[in-house]
Design a protein around this nucleic acid. Structure first.
Lengths: 222, 222
DNA sequence: AACACCAGATTGGATACCAATTCTCTTTAT
DNA sequence: ATAAAGAGAATTGGTATCCAATCTGGTGTT
């Protein structure tokens, strides 16, 4: 989830159980749950691997995200009041300031936050869950394909989408959302050349206690 | 999934492992996966139960379904060709014939199939998965609240929605989808009002049926 | 009647063990 | 030298057993 593990990495049960100082069964349960969320694949008698989506599947994930957010937008267009629209515009303004100050990381977070904000305004916990499930899958793609966004353009689109939705121009808003997502996808340059390889130890170390690190190193030494 | 278990029924690990002749751990793994799909709740140190959605949650499920199918419809409106629209109309015709012949069960299945067909026309496996996850949750609600649909009216709405989508009247199609789902929900809600929440009957019925399930399973197993 | 307390049952988890499959490396044959 | 075959190691999928923590229900005391 922190995008520290490269897709395709093997997640051995014994290895993980030693690193996290727990039993193989707990690890397997975790892997099964992650497989249910589409972040991990389990191949019978071969083990679990960080899911590595094909180009085709990547497109499906982004299409599903587009589809879902179009649905969200339709709902918002028929439900939000002026106060809500103002809240969204405030968020956009925040991101604009971050861009002006050249803080790309903050701008990136706020950019993702915009989509989250829209979904949370539906007041629908299930919708939020589904949305975050799709978004998490896109994170797996990010680590495969380096991204280079035109933040200013994307922000502009956010603003236009909000305008169209508030004025009830649903059809135009829909097609703008669609092209907005296309722009995001296009930002992901399909550049698999430099794989930032990290060992399991390095990737997981932030999540281990000192005690567990010791076990992990001991296990690696043998 | 077959709607044979009443929401609230306790799913004891030992009990299930004996009935299915497997170990407790396999059962627990299954329960964890079902919990991930929202069909089961697991309360710590208390066990797993068939999920019993509150009225609020039930509304959220239907809203999420509406939202999602609106997104599907937007996608279809911008992608389908005339051959695809014809396929949909053929399906509607099938259901109309079933209604004419008074075959309510078949009509019901075809009615659900209409929504499935729309989603499958997106050619997006992830979208189909998400859709069926939401639909499965609605099945849990069905077993709580009996329904009585006006099939003819619902079918008419299907037909109108298809017309609007093919002609690109997105906004009108969206609001028709919304009211279509409201009609479906109203089929449940009406009956729900007959069952005031948390009567003694309602509180006790899960335990009685759990007992019955026990006997039924024992009889079937031996 | 309210409260503390105790025994039974259930879950969450660990360990050990086994069968089946896969992987790897050596050996063998062409 | 290379490819096929095979034995052994390693890994997964699964079961049985055991133990601690927690919850449930009943009992007894005040």
């Amino acid at each position: 989830m922190a995008q520290r593990l490269v897709p395709g990495t093997k997640l051995g049960e014994r290895e993980l159980s030693e690193k996290f100082d727990s039993s193989r069964i707990v690890i397997r349960q975790a892997l099964l749950m992650l497989a249910g969320e589409g972040l991990v694949t389990i191949e019978r008698n071969r083990g679990a691997f960080v899911k590595r989506y094909s180009l085709q599947e990547a497109m499906e994930i982004y299409d599903a995200l587009t589809l879902f957010e179009q649905g969200v937008a339709v709902q918002l267009a028929s439900r939000l009041g002026t106060a809500d629209w103002q809240k969204i515009r405030d968020h956009i303004k925040l991101q604009a300031e971050a861009i002006d100050q050249g803080d790309n990381e903050l701008a990136d977070n706020l950019g993702a936050g915009f989509h989250e904000l829209l979904v949370s305004l539906t007041n629908n916990r299930l919708a939020q869950e589904i949305h975050s499930q799709i978004v998490q899958r896109t994170h797996l793609l990010r680590s495969l394909y380096n991204s280079r966004f035109d933040y200013c353009n994307l922000l502009n689109e956010h603003s236009k989408i909000v305008d169209l939705l508030e004025r009830g121009r649903v059809k135009q808003a829909m097609s703008l959302i669609e092209s907005h997502h296309h722009h995001v996808v296009r930002g992901y340059v399909m550049d698999m050349s430099n794989y930032p390889q990290m060992t399991l130890d390095e990737a997981l170390s932030p999540f281990l206690t000192a005690e567990e690190q010791k076990n992990s190193f001991a296990a690696a030494g043998i």
